[in-house]
Protein backbone atom coordinates (compact mmCIF):
# COMPACT_ATOMS: atom_id res chain seq x y z
CA UNK A 1 0.00 0.00 0.00
CA UNK A 2 1.25 3.45 -0.83
CA UNK A 3 0.23 6.67 0.83
CA UNK A 4 -1.51 8.94 -1.67
CA UNK A 5 -2.26 11.86 0.64
CA UNK A 6 -2.67 12.91 4.23
CA UNK A 7 -4.49 15.78 5.89
CA UNK A 8 -4.96 17.06 9.39
CA UNK A 9 -8.35 16.46 10.92
CA UNK A 10 -10.19 18.10 13.78
CA UNK A 11 -11.94 16.22 16.50
CA UNK A 12 -13.60 17.26 19.74
CA UNK A 13 -10.26 17.60 21.47
CA UNK A 14 -6.93 18.90 20.26
CA UNK A 15 -6.87 17.92 16.60
CA UNK A 16 -3.18 18.66 16.10
CA UNK A 17 -2.34 14.98 16.30
CA UNK A 18 -5.19 13.54 14.21
CA UNK A 19 -4.65 12.84 10.51
CA UNK A 20 -6.54 11.20 7.69
CA UNK A 21 -4.46 9.13 5.29
CA UNK A 22 -5.56 7.94 1.86
CA UNK A 23 -3.87 4.91 0.30
CA UNK A 24 -3.74 3.59 -3.23
CA UNK A 25 -5.93 0.59 -2.36
CA UNK A 26 -8.46 -0.48 0.22
CA UNK A 27 -7.49 -2.36 3.36
CA UNK A 28 -7.71 -6.09 2.77
CA UNK A 29 -8.31 -8.59 5.53
CA UNK A 30 -4.69 -9.68 5.15
CA UNK A 31 -3.41 -6.09 5.54
CA UNK A 32 -5.40 -5.72 8.71
CA UNK A 33 -4.20 -8.97 10.23
CA UNK A 34 -0.58 -8.10 9.45
CA UNK A 35 -0.82 -4.93 11.50
CA UNK A 36 -1.22 -7.03 14.63
CA UNK A 37 2.59 -7.18 14.63
CA UNK A 38 2.68 -3.43 15.32
CA UNK A 39 0.71 -3.55 18.56
CA UNK A 40 -2.75 -4.59 19.70
CA UNK A 41 -5.40 -5.13 17.04
CA UNK A 42 -9.13 -4.95 17.52
CA UNK A 43 -10.86 -6.23 14.45
CA UNK A 44 -14.64 -6.23 14.21
CA UNK A 45 -15.17 -8.55 11.30
CA UNK A 46 -18.85 -9.13 11.91
CA UNK A 47 -19.87 -5.49 11.56
CA UNK A 48 -21.75 -4.50 8.37
CA UNK A 49 -18.57 -2.76 7.24
CA UNK A 50 -15.78 -4.50 9.17
CA UNK A 51 -13.59 -2.03 11.05
CA UNK A 52 -10.30 -2.21 12.87
CA UNK A 53 -8.27 -0.31 15.38
CA UNK A 54 -4.57 -0.85 15.96
CA UNK A 55 -2.85 0.63 18.99
CA UNK A 56 0.85 0.60 18.11
CA UNK A 57 3.61 0.15 20.66
CA UNK A 58 4.55 3.85 20.39
CA UNK A 59 0.97 4.92 21.16
CA UNK A 60 -0.13 5.65 17.59
CA UNK A 61 -3.75 4.62 16.97
CA UNK A 62 -4.85 3.53 13.49
CA UNK A 63 -8.56 3.24 12.68
CA UNK A 64 -10.04 2.12 9.43
CA UNK A 65 -12.63 0.10 7.59
CA UNK A 66 -11.96 -3.00 5.50
CA UNK A 67 -11.94 -2.31 1.73
CA UNK A 68 -11.76 1.43 2.33
CA UNK A 69 -8.56 3.20 1.19
CA UNK A 70 -8.69 5.74 4.03
CA UNK A 71 -7.75 5.52 7.68
CA UNK A 72 -7.60 7.86 10.63
CA UNK A 73 -4.43 8.11 12.66
CA UNK A 74 -4.03 9.62 16.11
CA UNK A 75 -0.39 10.21 16.93
CA UNK A 76 0.78 10.34 20.55
CA UNK A 77 0.98 13.87 21.93
CA UNK A 78 4.41 13.39 23.43
CA UNK A 79 6.18 12.42 20.20
CA UNK A 80 3.93 13.23 17.25
CA UNK A 81 6.65 13.94 14.69
CA UNK A 82 8.63 10.79 15.41
CA UNK A 83 5.48 8.68 15.50
CA UNK A 84 4.34 10.11 12.17
CA UNK A 85 7.68 9.37 10.57
CA UNK A 86 7.58 5.86 11.99
CA UNK A 87 4.03 5.30 10.75
CA UNK A 88 4.80 6.43 7.21
CA UNK A 89 7.93 4.29 7.11
CA UNK A 90 5.91 1.25 8.16
CA UNK A 91 3.91 1.32 4.99
CA UNK A 92 7.04 0.42 3.14
CA UNK A 93 7.05 -2.67 5.32
CA UNK A 94 3.40 -3.44 4.71
CA UNK A 95 3.68 -3.11 0.96
CA UNK A 96 6.44 -5.68 0.77
CA UNK A 97 4.85 -8.16 3.16
Amino acid sequence: MKIISSEKMENCFDGDFVFKYIFDAGWTREDIIRMEAWGSLRYYESFPRPMFQVTCSDGTIIKGVQNDPACRIIFPRATPAAARENFEARFGELSVL
Partner: peptide, 21 residues
Protein backbone atom coordinates in the same frame (compact mmCIF):
# COMPACT_ATOMS: atom_id res chain seq x y z
CA UNK B 1 -15.98 6.98 22.70
CA UNK B 2 -13.97 8.00 19.67
CA UNK B 3 -13.61 4.38 18.63
CA UNK B 4 -17.28 3.68 19.25
CA UNK B 5 -18.31 6.77 17.27
CA UNK B 6 -16.02 5.76 14.42
CA UNK B 7 -17.53 2.27 14.39
CA UNK B 8 -21.10 3.58 14.43
CA UNK B 9 -20.41 5.95 11.56
CA UNK B 10 -18.16 3.85 9.38
CA UNK B 11 -19.55 0.38 10.03
CA UNK B 12 -23.23 1.07 10.65
CA UNK B 13 -23.90 4.42 8.95
CA UNK B 14 -25.03 6.05 12.19
CA UNK B 15 -24.03 9.68 12.62
CA UNK B 16 -23.86 10.87 16.20
CA UNK B 17 -21.57 13.12 18.23
CA UNK B 18 -18.70 11.96 20.42
CA UNK B 19 -16.57 13.78 22.94
CA UNK B 20 -17.34 16.69 25.23
CA UNK B 21 -20.05 18.31 23.06
Amino acid sequence: TDQAGFALRESFGIHCRTGLH
